[in-house]
């Protein structure tokens, strides 16, 4: 099967620092990949590079999405092609209405695909349906983007955006942080239902709780900007039992 995302010998990072160093990773449609690693290993940097942030320039290697080289593609174009990042700490933007922003995003996608804008009534109906599914309050439509949201609300809002934008590759950067146990169960259930044979998930996480619902096909141990070990769900159990040190080959 053709890959959805293919990363070859990637070297990238902010400023002059190559946080990502000779990374190779292939994700096929339908797969669930998990990246685990110690703090500062570059996990969030990887998600920033995949989504195309210009302040994390690529200095070597290529990134392919659905078979096309997207290494130099602007981030909005990557998003429109189906790459979605659920941020670890979603940013609050006062003054920008939460749902109007989302409508803007949905219509940007539709425009890029040659479709008409979504009618406001249809958009609201769909958004409210998903909000109910996520347990988000009605006043969400009046509030500013992530402004004054609790940690759990911010994460739910990310998933609301995912549901509305229907991406093919979903990167979930610590989706389980900021959520209580019930929240994790709800969100992971929704993500599991969203996932299908055409869509892939890339989870960045420290915890195994979410694996109870979303079963990983591959677990990668990420350190020093590259993958140092790949295995199945059993690898996560090893991390839980013995930490990351066992995979790092001693201290630097």
């Amino acid at each position: 099967m053709n890959s959805l995302l293919q990363i070859e010998s990637l070297i990238a990072g902010p400023s002059e620092t190559n946080i990502i160093n000779e990374l190779n990773l292939t994700i096929r449609p339908g797969e669930v990949h998990v990246i685990m690693g110690p703090n500062g290993a570059g996990k969030s940097t990887l998600s920033a590079v995949i989504t195309g942030r210009e302040d994390y320039p690529v200095r070597g290697g290529r990134v392919y999405f659905k078979g096309e080289d997207i290494t130099q593609l602007p981030m909005e174009e990557r998003a429109r092609r189906g790459i979605f990042l659920s941020h670890q700490s979603p940013l609050a933007i006062p003054g920008v209405n939460n749902l109007q922003f989302l409508r803007f995003a949905v219509n940007s996608h539709r425009k890029a695909h040659g479709e008409d804008e979504m009618k406001p009534g249809d958009f609201l109906k769909k958004a409210r349906e998903y909000m109910a599914l996520l347990g988000l309050p009605e006043d969400f439509s009046r509030r500013s983007l992530n402004d004054g949201f609790s940690g759990g609300e911010k994460k739910r809002n990310e998933i609301l955006q995912m549901l509305m934008l229907q991406p093919d590759l979903v990167i979930l950067d610590e989706i389980d942080s900021g959520l209580d146990v019930d929240g994790i169960a709800t969100i992971s259930g929704i993500i599991k239902n969203y996932h299908n044979k055409n869509r892939a998930l890339l989870l960045i996480t420290h915890y195994q709780k979410i694996f109870e619902t979303i079963k990983p096909d591959y677990v990668h141990i990420f350190a020093k900007g590259k993958i140092v070990k790949t295995g199945g769900a059993e690898l996560a159990a090893l991390v839980d039992a013995g930490g990351f040190e066992q995979f790092l080959g001693g201290k630097e």
């Binding site: 909005e76 940007s108 500013s144």
Partner: peptide, 24 residues
């Protein structure tokens, strides 16, 4: 970046952000 990561063009994202500041 947050807005652009959702597919909004850089130009529109800037307009929205300035609008957000003004609305605030």
């Amino acid at each position: 970046y947050y807005l652009r990561a959702r597919g909004i063009s850089a130009e529109d994202a800037r307009s929205l952000l300035i609008g957000g500041f003004v609305a605030d």
